[in-house]
Write a protein that binds this DNA or RNA. Structure first.
Lengths: 124, 124
DNA sequence: AAATTGTATAGCCTCAATATATACAATTAT
DNA sequence: ATAATTGTATATATTGAGGCTATACAATTT
C-alpha cells in the first residue's frame, strides 16, 4: 500500500497513515467494500509496530471511513458523504463561533467578519 | 488586588491572573501608568509562588498591556487599542482561513459559510 | 546600606500523547 | 480439527510540553 511516513516533521505516524488512507477513500482510490492490508501486514511494510497501524485504523473507524472485524480484516465502508459534510460543518461552526466571540470582545462588527471571510478566502 | 483563583477548573493560575488583569485594563478599572502590585506582593496575597505572578505579568507584557522595570515595578501601558484590534483581527483571519480550507475540502460553498457565520453569531 | 522590585536559570512534577509488547478472541484456510 | 491469520484488550515504557517553584542575580528606591 502506498503510504509515506516521514519522521522528519512532528506529525505522529498513526495520523500520517490515517490521513493518507482517508484521502485515498475520499478520492475514490479505495472503494467501498475493499479490504485494507491487515494491520500486521501494513506494520511490517512500514517497519513499525502493528499497534500503531491499529491506532491508525481505529482513527479511521471512529471517523466512519472503515470497519474492522476480528479474524476477517478491515474494509472500506460505504461512504456517507452527508455525514462527513455534517461533521465538517460542525467544525466550521465552532471556528466561526470563536471568530464571532473574538470579534465581539474587540469591537469588530459582524459585517467586518463577512468582509474578512471573503478577503481571506477569495484571494485564490 | 481583586483577583480570584479557582483551583477547580483546569485553567492555569497564571492565565487566570493575566486575563483578569487584562479585563480590568480593557474596562478602564486599571488606568494608564498605574502601578500594579509587585509580583511578590501579589504572590503573597494569592498564596502562590511569585514566579507564577511573574509568568502572568510576562503574559501581559507580551500582549502589550503592561511594562515592567527592574527595581521599580510594573505599570499599565498606554493602551493602543488599534494594535489590540489588529492582533485580534489576525487571530480572526486565521480562524476564517481554516474555516475556508475545511469548507473547500468538504465541498461547502463560501455562500454557506456566510450563512453559517450569521446563524452562529446572530442567534443571541 | 537595606529594602524592594524585576530577571534569569534550573529543577521538579504531572499529564497526555505516542509507540510498543504481549496475551487473548474470532474467523478463515488447510 | 488445527494451524494460520486477523482484529482486540491490557499493560508498559518513553517522550515532551505545560505549569509551578526555588534560588541566585541585578537594578532601583528608600
Amino acid at each position: 500500500m502506498n503510504i509515506n511516513i516521514s519522521n522528519a516533521n512532528g506529525e505522529p505516524i498513526y495520523l500520517q497513515i490515517a490521513s493518507q488512507i482517508k484521502t485515498m477513500i475520499l478520492e475514490g482510490k479505495l472503494k467501498e467494500g475493499e479490504m485494507l492490508p491487515s494491520m500486521r501486514v501494513l506494520a511490517t511494510e512500514l517497519h513499525i509496530s502493528f499497534m500503531t497501524t491499529k491506532r491508525a485504523y481505529e482513527e479511521l473507524e471512529r471517523d466512519g471511513f472503515i470497519e474492522s472485524y476480528t479474524g476477517r480484516g478491515s474494509f472500506v465502508k460505504a461512504q456517507n458523504l452527508e455525514i462527513y459534510r455534517e461533521e465538517q460543518l460542525k467544525h466550521i461552526e465552532s471556528l466561526l463561533m470563536e471568530a464571532g466571540d473574538t470579534a465581539r470582545k474587540a469591537g469588530i462588527s459582524i459585517e467586518e467578519l463577512h468582509e474578512l471571510l471573503d478577503l481571506v478566502n477569495g484571494g485564490d
